[in-house]
Design a protein around this nucleic acid. Structure first.
Lengths: 224, 224
DNA sequence: ACCTGAACACCGTTCAAGT
DNA sequence: ACCTGAACACCGTTCAAGT
């Protein structure tokens, strides 16, 4: 990350000393360049001009490597914004989470890999909880609302990174066997409208925050 | 799936003929028994008493195998329920999606693996869209609402399968470095309340459906 | 304390050969 | 048409050895 002359390496030549920072830095670069499948202990060692086993002096195992890289990226976020209403603070919080995830698209895939515990994504929790308890939600409901928001945001980012599924492309006629002709006809108009990820994201946040607001102003849920 | 005497195999002995159905059936069994890491072409072949390469006569590659198994499980769902109000139809739809996913917990991990296109999860889409357009949402908003619901449901199921993260256990004192002492103190009461997945799921659906309802009854979002 | 080299126990998959 | 056996190109990781 820091590009001061701590260890200037002349473009491709191997640096002489390894440390945890350089391993993680190069892992993130490799991840951005070749994706999750391309981030391999052996390729990483190659990239660092070192034997695969040298990596293990700075990292416990591959799981540790992946978790640490993901954590570093997410901790680059500035979740806490100064003021604003409760819903605006929550919005900013999750906008920021989305932003840092999209800056390194493969990060979100790491957090979804079996065996990886992406605990860093919980970081904005204290902001959500504080804002929601401010409008009178119980600890329990605030926690549930936080997971609702988090699941939506991470799911959207993931969908955003994988890109629209070809099976939803109406050019593939009966939508590749997932729908009957009748069903396909019914969803066709909705599928054809152009998809704007930013707008869909803001829409989702609005709906959730609106629902939470309704929960707060009147105490029987209109749809339960 | 069918247990009629099509090819009764005497408990561990290898059957004489292989077909796509038996491959998929055994793959699902192996998945349930050993998880996503345990489902391997070679172990699957072992289980079927056959050489690894024999699998490839009935399945294009591992990606095809995983996608087909996931699809088969999800297609076991009964999404379409007879009547009920618009929000009740949507609720039933996603309850059913959650149910079939939880019946084979590793399925959700497959749908999240990089390179796998879990298109079968889109199946309930036509029901959501129809219900939402019934209350006056545009094609565009209906589509966005569908993805909001889907992302929430899949995210919740995933969290449910992985189990609560140890980093959120307040027993691990400063919540293992993800929170400052101050933040940890603020979230502690919320983290300590017992977590009920069923209740959290219904809460999330209620909030989203409540938000959608508000969108429908008055046209400026109270929180935008 | 850190790095190397060879090896182990696995993967998915290709290919030529059998029936 | 379907199965086999050997091989290839990879993985993550252990271990003993070097400095």
């Amino acid at each position: 990350v820091s590009s001061k002359s701590e260890k200037r390496r002349p473009a491709g030549a191997k640096a002489r000393t390894l440390n945890r920072g350089r391993v993680l830095e190069e892992a993130l670069a490799l991840l951005d360049r070749e994706g999750v499948q391309g981030l391999t202990i052996r390729k990483l060692a190659d990239q660092l001009g070192v034997t695969p086993m040298a990596i293990y002096n700075h990292v416990a195992d591959k799981k540790d490597l992946l978790e640490t890289v993901a954590k570093a990226v997410i901790e680059g976020a500035q979740f806490a914004q100064p003021g604003g209403e409760w819903h605006e603070r929550i919005r900013n919080c999750f906008r920021e989470l989305r932003r840092v995830c999209l800056a390194h698209p493969s990060i979100i895939k790491i957090t979804q890999m079996p065996g990886i515990a992406p605990t860093a994504v919980f970081h904005p929790m204290h902001i959500t909880l504080a804002a929601l308890e401010e409008i009178g939600l119980s600890h329990q409901d605030a926690m549930r609302a936080h997971f609702l928001l988090l699941n939506f945001v991470l799911g959207q980012v993931s969908y955003e990174v994988y890109g629209p599924y070809p099976d939803l492309d109406p050019a593939n006629s009966p939508l590749r066997g997932n729908f009957s002709d009748e069903e396909a006809a019914r969803i066709a108009p909705a599928v054809q409208v152009e998809w704007d990820f930013d707008a869909a994201f803001e829409f989702g946040l609005s709906v959730i925050l609106g629902g939470l607001n309704a929960l707060h102003s009147c105490h029987d849920h209109p749809t339960s």
